[in-house]
Design a protein around this nucleic acid. Structure first.
Ligand SMILES: [Mn+2]
Ligand SMILES: [Mn+2]
Ligand SMILES: [Zn+2]
Ligand SMILES: [Zn+2]
Lengths: 128, 128
DNA sequence: ATGATAGTGATAGTGATTATCATTCGATAT
DNA sequence: ATATCGAATGATAATCACTATCACTATCAT
């Protein structure tokens, strides 16, 4: 019952065409730049709908949600506290241990979020 | 230059006396119940100051920050998406793997946050 | 064509948190 | 003991990401 409208398709294309982690404002701004102006509420609803359908992925940072392509393998994120850059990593061993924890607790896992905060390579080098 | 005022001491005592993960409103409400009424802005500032000094720990949930005693060993959290309960777990092997990831990337870790979302034992049992 | 259903977009509202600012506190210097 | 000055307080306004409302529109099935 969720429709893939022209607006949602535009959002999806935008995200699929890049490797960035987008927030709602960035999506709206970039679309406007391309002459495709979509109401900000529609962007929020579109992002939520697309994520719900699994067409894009979402990650919840401290302040806001960001969205990215869904056609990558599952991964978690390294967030630079200095420049804000977001790197990705994949560590299946961690996921296994997470499942182990859940099993021990009789907890039914629906999802998880692992964020590593710190200084990226560049910022680490440029520290004074 | 950060002072441990009477208000902040009251907040700290409140948190140290329990095992809960408190948000600002809960702290303010409970203190008022005990006849210690502190402005909500002061509660926010107090919690931030105490966390900065390492006297309490903070975790960032999707919607709000929560604070807890700092005198427990490091741990991460299982968050029930149904009842909101928060359980704790400790899995040093995961932390080791995190450090490994960071090292591989030349990333200087300052902190991390691992949240497992799902149904707690009770909610899992009570599902219809 | 006719509804039913879902989406859109402008805008108001929400909820957590932070900023402002006049006032008060409290540790230190006199 | 008193003056002093930076930090804290608390009432309140502002911010910011997001959600709700609502009148209108697009799409699809009969
Ligand atoms: Mn990613
Ligand atoms: Mn905890
Ligand atoms: Zn960086
Ligand atoms: Zn539960």
């Amino acid at each position: 019952m969720q429709k893939l409208t022209a607006q949602r398709q535009a959002i999806l294309d935008m995200i699929n065409r890049s490797d960035k982690h987008w927030d709602a404002d960035e999506v709206a701004y970039k679309l406007k730049e391309q002459g495709i102006s979509i109401g900000i509420a529609t962007v929020y609803r579109g992002l939520a709908a697309l994520a719900e359908q699994g067409l894009i992925e979402s990650i919840q940072l401290a302040d806001k949600k960001r969205y990215e392509r869904a056609d990558k393998a599952h991964h978690d994120h390294l967030v630079c506290t200095s420049c804000g850059s977001i790197e990705e990593f994949c560590k299946p061993e961690i996921e296994v241990l997470q499942d182990q924890v859940a099993e021990e607790r009789d907890f039914h896992i629906q999802g998880h979020q692992l964020l590593l905060f710190g200084l990226c390579k560049a910022c680490k080098a440029g520290e004074r």
